[in-house]
Each structure stands twice: as C-alpha cells, then as structure tokens.
C-alpha cells in the first residue's frame, strides 16, 4: 500500500492530553480520592498485622492466667485487656486476623475463578450451555447464604478448611451470575461482531474482547465479597462450625466472650469492632476502586 496519499480532510489536532495506560489512569484517579486511600491503608495495615502477627503481638495469644481474667483496658500492659481465660486481647486480635482474613479471601478467590469461568462460559455459550449452568446455580439461590454456609459446613463437620469450602460454595453462584450478566451484555455489542467479521475464533474473541470487559465487574464484586466472607466466617466460628478453640479467631472470640458481657462489656465488644473495621474498610476500598476503574469517567 502506498504510504503517502492525499487526504480529503485536514488532520484533526486537538491539544494532546498526557497519555497513560489503563492502570496508570486508574492509579491517578485513586490518588485524588482520600477516602479510598485512607481505607486502602487500613486494609494494608490489617493485612500486614496478620502476616507479621508473631512479631507484633505483645504477648503470647495462648498464654492463660487465672488471676488476670477479664481485666479492663490497659491492665498491666494489656492495652486492650484480657479475655475470660486471662489471654491478652490485643495479641489474640492480631493473631485472629490471620484466620479471619484467610477465610474471607480464599473462598472469594476460589469463587472468582470457578464462578467467573462458569459465568463467562454460560454467558458466551449457546442457550443450552447457559441454561445448564445458570439453572444449576439457581438451585443454590433457593437457600439464604448464611443457612447454606451453616448447612454445608455442618454437614462436612467444622474446621477452618471445611468452612472455607462452604463459603466458596456460597459465593460461586453469585459470582457466576455477575460474570454471566457482564458477558451477555458485552457479547451482543457490535465490536464482538466486528471481531468475528475479521475472522477471529471464539477463544481469541474471549481473550481479547470479552475478558477485559468482564474482569472489571467481577473484580469489583469479588472485592466487596471479601467483607461478607469475613462476616460469614466469623458467624460460622461463632456458631462453632468454623475454627475450633483455642485458635484465635474474631468470630470465636466474640462467641466465648459473649458470656462475660456483664463483667467487662468493653473488652467483649472488641472482636466485633475488629470485624466491623475490617469489613467496612474492605467495602469502602472496593467502592473507591469501582469508581476509579470506570474508564468512561
């Protein structure tokens, strides 16, 4: 093809804005969003505290003390007091974050991969594939999510592993539906048809045109599910279906401290406060990322 040719219209030259990649522009928008940045830092602090728990915790979280039971805040260097067995609350909260975060994040990750894949296949595939996948997922919707989580982990027996499996099964249908909806919306747009018209195969179209448009909503939904996961995991532990005592876990701590609420209400509420702060931070962070990731703003 000739490289030089006379064009019927003049080159259009608006002022050139600074060019950024997609993630560059997302990062730039996040910089000007102090709320998201703040809660992002909180989430980061919680995660770091969980990772470096043995270094950060002032006391051994499993060391019991007969005389130091249910002491108030600040008692003998126990900043947040002690629990019903005299164990340091702060140390237990820091260690408990490990289990709680793990049970919040791992099931969401599993559900994202499994549910997301099923959803994209269901959304892009034909009517029969779609019906087979989506109606199966609908079966899970027949039960409230808490009931389903309790039923599954109850049937498989307690423990952190079974709890995570139960939560994964609870999250997968919702994730599948989000991915399916996003895929079905994108699938019918002209640019997918244009890609087919260039002779691209299904897998190529999925990879270059569908995934990029589906990952956004899926990722955002996943980040909002993390806080639900932490709450549900705590709920399972509270009911005795999650981790077993004496493991430090926020839900379990809430459950055992509950009996002492008339003795020292402030200390008993602390694990709940930890759950609250964590889930609120995850939620607000995911909200901020959601708006920063909208490329059309």
């Amino acid at each position: 093809m000739p490289n030089t040719m006379i064009l019927p219209t003049a080159m259009i030259e608006p002022a050139a804005p600074k060019q950024r990649g997609y993630w560059g522009s997302v990062g730039n928008r996040l910089r000007y969003d102090p709320v998201t940045v703040f809660f992002g830092l909180v989430v980061l602090a919680i995660i770091l505290a969980a990772i470096f728990a043995p270094l950060l915790a002032p006391f051994d979280p499993y060391k019991e003390s007969i005389i130091g039971r249910l002491k108030p805040l600040g008692w003998k260097g126990h900043w947040l007091g002690t629990d019903e067995l005299g164990r340091d609350i702060l140390s237990r909260l820091i260690h408990g974050g490990r289990v709680s975060l793990l049970m919040g994040v791992v099931p969401v990750a599993i559900a994202t991969v499994v549910g997301g894949t099923l959803g994209v296949v269901g959304g892009f595939g034909g009517r029969k594939v779609n019906t087979a996948i989506m109606r199966t997922m609908d079966v899970f919707y027949a039960f409230p999510s808490v009931l389903l989580a309790v039923a599954i982990s109850g049937a498989m027996g307690g423990g952190a592993m079974n709890g995570m499996i139960a939560l994964s099964m609870v999250f997968t249908p919702a994730m599948c539906r989000v991915a399916e909806t996003a895929t079905a919306q994108v699938k019918n747009l002209d640019f997918v048809e244009a890609a087919r018209a260039t002779g691209a195969g299904t897998l190529t179209i999925l990879r270059y045109h569908i995934l990029g448009n589906v990952l956004g909503p899926v990722f955002i939904y996943a980040s909002s599910l993390v806080s639900v996961g932490i709450l549900l995991a705590s709920g399972l532990s509270f009911l005795g279906l999650g981790v077993k005592p004496p493991t430090a876990d926020w839900g379990l701590m809430l459950s055992t401290l509950r009996q002492s609420i008339y003795v020292n209400p402030v200390v008993c509420a602390l694990p709940g406060v930890a759950i609250l702060i964590t889930s609120v931070s995850f939620n607000l962070l995911s909200d901020g990322i959601r708006s920063a990731m909208d490329v059309r703003m």
Binding site: A194, G212, N213
Partner: peptide, 27 residues
Amino acid sequence: QMVFQDSSSSLNPRMPVRDSIAFGPYV
C-alpha cells in the same frame, strides 16, 4: 470487511483504539 452504524459500540471500550485496529492483522 464491515463498518457498523454505531461507532461507539463497535469499538471495545477497554482497548486503546490502535489495539482495536491491530486486532484484525494479528488474528
């Protein structure tokens, strides 16, 4: 090849336009 009526929906919103153009030759 085909050019569609709706100039917006016939371009992938999450792809820089040069990648949209390069997609055909790449395929």
